[in-house]
């Protein structure tokens, strides 16, 4: 039996997906990227192999994607995460027309065509507003963990308006909101709204087509997803492991690579 590996080395997490020839996911893993992305790639691969219960030698081909894609020495091919997210989302939800990926360092909106092909895409500018990093900075300011943000924001009955677009400005705004004794949940909801507004303007630039699939770590945050659904006026597909969508796309490309080679 042959297997195909996709590895996505992101700014925050490094993820792997292993597919078999029937295009079934037989193993995956998510680990922290940390300081050394080559080591993270090794680690995530080992874990995925354990889950798939196969030997490393069984991997026929590997495609790497994500920021650290150049740090994966054993990959035959390197492809950007934009193409991979499109493919991965299309595989999971074939009605996908738009992918919204909010990652650690950047966020992107991708228009997806037949077969998971990228038709168009846009990414945030240099600034961190509208990314996972933005939430991380704010969570630290508010002394709550990143995982708690979603549930806390859903508990808010009202929300505070965060008017600044810039992370640095927003940070000082949050400081003064805390000083004014605004409830943490309401501030968090305001922060989520601010991210959603940023994403919304990127979505509008491309226009929505078909179903929307969300990938990346922030997709786990129910608060952001529900605000975004409200804004888009349509439900959003979110996989139970939204972080592996990029690696899944890479694995699909690895499979395609092996097929065209033979």
């Amino acid at each position: 039996m042959k297997y195909f590996l996709g590895i996505d080395v992101g700014a925050l997490s490094t993820n792997a997906v292993i597919l078999d020839v029937r295009r079934e996911i037989v193993g995956y893993s998510i680990v922290q990227t940390g300081a050394n992305s080559t080591e993270a790639a090794e680690e995530t691969l080992e874990k995925a192999l354990v889950m798939a219960n196969i030997d490393r030698a069984k991997i026929t081909s590997t495609v790497a994607t994500g920021y650290g894609r150049i740090s994966v020495p054993f990959a035959e091919k390197k492809v950007t995460e934009i193409s991979c997210h499109a493919l991965g989302a299309y595989y999971l939800y074939p009605d996908t027309g738009t992918v919204i990926d909010i990652g650690g360092q950047d966020s992107k909106v991708i228009r997806v065509g037949d077969g998971g092909k990228v038709l168009d895409f846009t990414m945030n500018d240099k600034c961190a507003a509208g990314t996972g990093r933005f939430l991380e900075v704010m969570a630290a300011k508010l002394r709550v963990s990143l995982d708690e943000l979603g549930d806390l924001s859903l508990q808010a009955s009202q929300e505070v308006q965060i008017s600044s677009v810039c992370t640095v400005f927003a940070e000082s705004e949050v400081v003064s909101l805390v000083a004014q004794n605004h409830p943490t949940e309401e501030i968090i909801r305001g922060l989520h709204r601010s991210i959603v507004n940023r994403i919304w303007s990127m979505v509008k630039m491309l226009g929505i087509r078909g179903a929307v699939t969300m990938s990346g770590g922030v997709a786990k945050n129910r608060g952001v997803v529900s605000l975004l659904e409200e804004r888009l006026e349509q439900p959003i597909h979110v996989h139970t492991e939204p972080q592996i969508v990029g690696a899944l796309g890479a694995a699909l490309l690895a499979l395609r690579l092996a097929q065209t080679a033979t």
């Binding site: 950007t80 934009i82 193409s83 360092q105 990414m123 500018d125 240099k126």
Partner: peptide, 28 residues
């Protein structure tokens, strides 16, 4: 016709993010 918009400051290396955008455009 596909389009790609990039804005950056002069003489600054292409960031990984910008390089990714260009590569994705190429793949597209």
């Amino acid at each position: 016709v596909a389009t790609l918009l990039i804005d950056c400051e002069l003489n600054q290396n292409l960031s990984g993010q910008l390089a990714t955008r260009v590569e994705a455009f190429f793949e597209m």
